[in-house]
């Protein structure tokens, strides 16, 4: 199948593999610990693990956009680092 129109690149492939890995990890986590671990965190509404992953991913996207908008492409790895700590914070407290 001709896929050149999709214009794949190494970094975008890694990006998608990362997203799919997150979802697969959540499936495995759910298999071993079913129920989604619902709880009420600092946002004061009930969230499951899936909600926390969603909040982490969308927050990560906005952290990167904010970095690009305010600072530029330089040091974008810092944005990834901040996102990583943000995601840990979300999974621990939200």
């Amino acid at each position: 199948m001709e896929l050149s129109w999709m214009a794949w690149t190494g970094p975008t492939a890694i990006f998608w593999i990362g997203i799919v890995s997150c979802i697969l990890s959540m499936c495995i986590w759910e298999y071993f610990s079913p129920g989604g671990n619902p709880r009420i965190g600092i946002l004061r509404f009930e969230t499951t693990r899936g909600d926390r992953l969603f909040i982490s991913l969308i927050g990560t996207a906005f952290i990167h956009l904010a970095w690009l908008g305010f600072i530029g492409a330089a040091g974008l790895w810092w944005a990834l680092g901040i996102s990583f700590f943000y995601a840990i914070g979300v999974f621990k407290t939200v």
């Binding site: 050149s4 999709m6 794949w8 970094p11 975008t12």
Partner: peptide, 16 residues
């Protein structure tokens, strides 16, 4: 959407 992500980090003048 995968294609859009791929396009967003590249430039093209046509012809794939």
């Amino acid at each position: 959407i995968m294609t859009v992500v791929n396009y967003s980090v590249q430039d093209t003048f046509g012809g794939n």
